[in-house]
Computed example of a mutant assay.
Amino acid sequence: MSNTVWKQRSLNWFSVVGQIEAWSFLILLGIAMPLKYGMDVPEAVTIVGIAHGFFFALYLSTVVLATIVHRWSVLRMLAAFVASLLPFGPFVMDRRIRKAMLAEGGNAASR
């Protein structure tokens, strides 16, 4: 597989997994937590929390993969990690990375 294909696939995985991780975090905070503490339904946090934990770990894996394939700086890698700790962070990070990679001459716009 060519280097260009790896670059595009790693960026696509970073984007897709980042969006899923961000949605799972928002669902955890916006739906599951209110169900647990407002309506005494702790199972919601258990189920969504496990799913979110899986997607968080997968997101970190895609950050490492993208860092290796694209030779991201430590600062960019850390920014991607910090973004995962903030609601809506992965959405913003994905947009910024794609914009930066386009400016650097990469083919970040296609999916």
Results as ranks from 00 to 15, higher is better:
Asn3Pro: 00
Asn3Trp: 02
Thr4Asp: 11
Trp6Gly: 07
Lys7Glu: 07
Ser10Met: 07
Leu11Arg: 10
Ser15Val: 15
Gly18Asn: 05
Gln19Leu: 12
Glu21Met: 06
Ala22Leu: 01
Trp23Asp: 07
Ser24Ala: 12
Ser24His: 04
Leu26Ile: 15
Leu29Val: 03
Leu29Ile: 11
Gly30Val: 00
Ala32Gln: 03
Pro34Gly: 15
Lys36Cys: 09
Gly38Leu: 06
Met39Thr: 06
Asp40Ser: 07
Val41Asn: 06
Val41Met: 11
Glu43Cys: 05
Glu43Val: 12
Thr46Ala: 06
Val48Asp: 09
His52Leu: 08
His52Met: 03
Phe56Ile: 06
Ala57Leu: 13
Leu58Trp: 13
Tyr59Lys: 08
Tyr59Trp: 08
Ser61Asp: 14
Val64Lys: 03
Leu65Pro: 00
Leu65Cys: 03
Leu65Tyr: 08
Ala66Met: 14
Val69Asn: 09
His70Leu: 13
Arg71Lys: 06
Trp72Met: 14
Ser73Trp: 12
Leu75Tyr: 02
Arg76Thr: 15
Ala80Gln: 10
Phe81Val: 14
Leu85Met: 15
Leu86His: 13
Phe88Asp: 15
Met93Phe: 02
Ile97Ser: 06
Ala100Tyr: 00
Leu102Val: 09
Leu102Gln: 12
Ala103Leu: 11
Gly105Cys: 05
Asn107Ile: 01
Ala109His: 04
Arg111Ser: 08
Arg111His: 02
